[in-house]
Design a protein around this nucleic acid. Structure first.
Lengths: 213, 213
DNA sequence: CAAAGAAGTAACCAGTTAGTGCGTTAAGTG
DNA sequence: CACTTAACGCACTAACTGGTTACTTCTTTG
């Protein structure tokens, strides 16, 4: 039997994976400082000792969770294959993707927030991240150039600024949805509200980038 | 003597104020969960008992710090007196103000992030907030209407969406400056980078709102 | 000036938390 | 089957943390 599919009483990989999933939830819910190692162990139905066995300590566990989160979103982005679409459509697809991803993976936002509260000290130690983002920035840069050649995008737009802006208008809305709903006396998470926001975001970026928006 | 200005060995108001200032710093630095009451007491050069005497408990202290932070930014906004400017200039002034305020008061962003991590449960209990924001949303709504009448703004823009977007493009850049600087291999906090970002933000909003951007 | 009340302090407590020492049990291997 | 290796679990601890008790000192006021 090449791959063992039957449930084993002992399975290092499965335990490791359960711990990682539990850690992601707990860190996302409470932040690095607020997360409890015992809680992670309980959620993972693993013994706390195993966490230290596989991951060393709480901080290293957090770093690995974070690396995985970044890897996941970039992998999903790769699958969009924006190169095969006209620039304008590709840009809109990227905006929609970013929004949908944040919406379906709320832990991502909370993890990044937590990492920034700690001045990115875990990401600094990471070696996997560099490579990951080189490709990403390159992709958006290429998209912008292609749009200019097609005669639909304005020239001279900085891909980094555009990237940040596309992320910002979705990220901020979602990360601040709780205070926002109180402050603006509106349920920002109602389905219509979400649709409305996505439409507004597409309009914002299209007007910024396109010659004829 | 009506107002006592000389330094007293005992001064309830001064101690209260020192505790609040220290709490704001500590909460901003470490979040609600990571903040330490002992650390707040040390920073404030007050005895820990005083914190409980004046503020009840850690959560209430956080709520009051948060209320104060919101009050401060709204008060600063009021002083802009945007009503006395042409709509277009008023809008640009609002964008600049928002950016500058976040830049000069980084605790504000961190406090709001922390509150959202806790699903805004402190803000929900607050009674002072409602009034504060009614006026603010009204102001931006009025600005938009005025711009339409002046023939410079597009009609039909939702003031809440615009508000959120103006905040988002500054807030996201600054709150994620640590991971951003690594990911984009650029010092996002260099003076030129900050100027560049502000200019980009103004362009983004002007293209979104104005008829002739 | 004496009494009362408020400001301020030190020491402490009970519960919690990240991290470990050490023994047990299952899975692979010859 | 015996033996080694690695997964797993219990029970512990040293340090920490929010909150409190019991007390002292200063300021105000009748």
């Amino acid at each position: 039997m090449a791959a063992n599919t039957q449930k084993k009483t002992r399975d290092a990989d499965a335990t490791r994976a359960r711990i990682l999933a539990a850690a992601k939830k707990e860190f996302a819910k409470s932040g690095l400082g607020g997360a409890r190692v015992d809680e992670i162990a309980d959620r993972a139905k693993a013994n706390k000792r195993m966490i230290y066995h596989y991951f060393g300590n709480k901080e290293d566990l957090f770093r690995i969770v974070l690396e995985e989160a970044y890897t996941d979103i970039r992998e999903a982005e790769q699958k969009l294959e924006l190169e095969h679409l006209p620039a304008r459509e590709a840009l809109e697809k990227l905006i929609r993707f970013t929004w949908d991803y944040y919406l379906k993976n709320p832990e991502f936002i909370t993890l990044v927030n937590s990492e920034n509260l700690h001045k990115a000290r875990h990401l600094k130690k990471s070696e996997k991240i560099d490579e990951l983002f080189r490709r990403f920035v390159g992709m958006v840069g290429g998209l912008l150039e292609r749009g200019v050649q097609e005669g639909v995008f304005r020239p001279g737009i900085d891909p980094v600024q555009l990237n940040i802006t596309i992320a910002a208008i979705g990220y901020y809305y979602l990360t601040n949805r709780f205070t926002g709903s109180i402050v603006f006396k509106r349920d920002l998470m109602a389905p219509e509200a979400l649709d409305e926001r996505l439409a507004f975001n597409i309009e914002t970026i299209m007007r910024l980038v396109c010659i004829n928006p």
